[in-house]
Design a protein around this nucleic acid. Structure first.
Length: 272
DNA sequence: ACCACAACCTGGCCGC
DNA sequence: TGCGGCCAGGTTGTGG
């Protein structure tokens, strides 16, 4: 599932192949992948544009175009962007193909059809509400502690709220809570100052380490060249129900919080 | 402002 | 071999 480390990796690995190229056209194999504008207008506005840069905000990928417009892509749960030379044999579940002027193509593959792309003149409506970027300097322990003190919901639910912090998803929230020794059902405001600081450190560590491993290939995530990431091998609790805790040996548990599977160690992360 | 939940989607896996 | 049920979970919209 693409969270911040996966989207960051995709961005980094697309840049050398895509920035400076022109988009000769886009083929929609499934029109629902385009959120706005309509297909006809999209085609006329994007054809011939140079990609001048690729950025990331939270889990959004942002392609800057020569006209100043932005192509904003969200991969949701099962999307990937794969580079290839042969558009006559796209990967299975390809929903759109972005054709580049050097004969290369970006295949937007997405089995579950949750992913979307849109063409906008201005990104503020999309990313303006997002919380702070957890790997940037503005995300300080003091800021995290202050934000947490205002929220009564379970800390797990708060961490995956994109308006609270941008980019953290289900897997890395579980990993950060384990690293900080905090039970996922603890009310956010109940964290002590010391716990908030531990959590701040854990979030940064877990995300940076996963970027170093080029993301986690738990189910459908692949890098643009088709290779998997390696971060899943570093997971200590996520998707490991029934396995033994790497710290204390206790059997790891899974509970559902806000409809999301939450994995934790009942001993290292004591009940609220 | 905060909180909670349903809906959107479909493939892969497991047990029977 | 087939089939039903579970699991994966980011965002949006709705309502309290």
């Amino acid at each position: 599932m693409p969270e911040l480390p996966e989207v960051e990796t995709i961005k980094n690995e697309l840049v050398p192949h895509v920035v400076g190229r022109r988009i000769s056209g886009v083929t929609l194999s499934w029109e629902g992948i385009l959120k706005e504008p309509n297909a006809q207008e999209f085609d006329s506005r994007i054809a011939g544009q140079e990609v001048t840069g690729i950025g990331r905000r939270g889990k959004y990928l942002i392609f800057s175009l020569g006209s100043g417009e932005l192509l904003i892509v969200h991969l949701k749960m099962s999307g990937s962007l794969l580079l290839g030379w042969d558009s006559s044999s796209p990967p299975r579940f390809t929903r759109a193909v972005i054709h580049l002027d050097n004969g290369r193509h970006i295949f937007f593959r997405d089995p579950r059809k949750f992913g979307r792309m849109r063409l906008l003149k201005d990104s503020t409506s999309i990313i303006g509400r997002l919380g702070p970027e957890p790997l940037e300097a503005g995300f300080t322990p003091e800021l995290l502690a202050r934000l947490l003190s205002k929220r009564k919901a379970p800390i797990k639910a708060v961490l995956i709220d994109q308006n609270f912090i941008a980019g953290l998803g289900n897997m890395y929230a579980d990993e950060a809570l384990f690293a900080a020794g905090i039970h996922p059902l603890r009310p956010a405001a109940s964290l002590t100052r010391r716990e908030a600081w531990r959590l701040h450190r854990a979030i940064k560590q877990v995300l940076s380490s996963a970027i170093g491993d080029k993301g986690a290939s738990v189910t459908t995530y692949f890098r643009p060249g088709g290779e998997p990431g390696k971060a899943q091998f570093q997971f200590r609790v996520a998707h490991r129900r029934g396995e033994n805790c790497p710290v204390c040996g206790t059997s790891l548990e899974r509970i559902t919080i806000r409809g999301r599977g939450s994995y934790f160690c009942p001993r290292c992360q004591p009940e609220p």
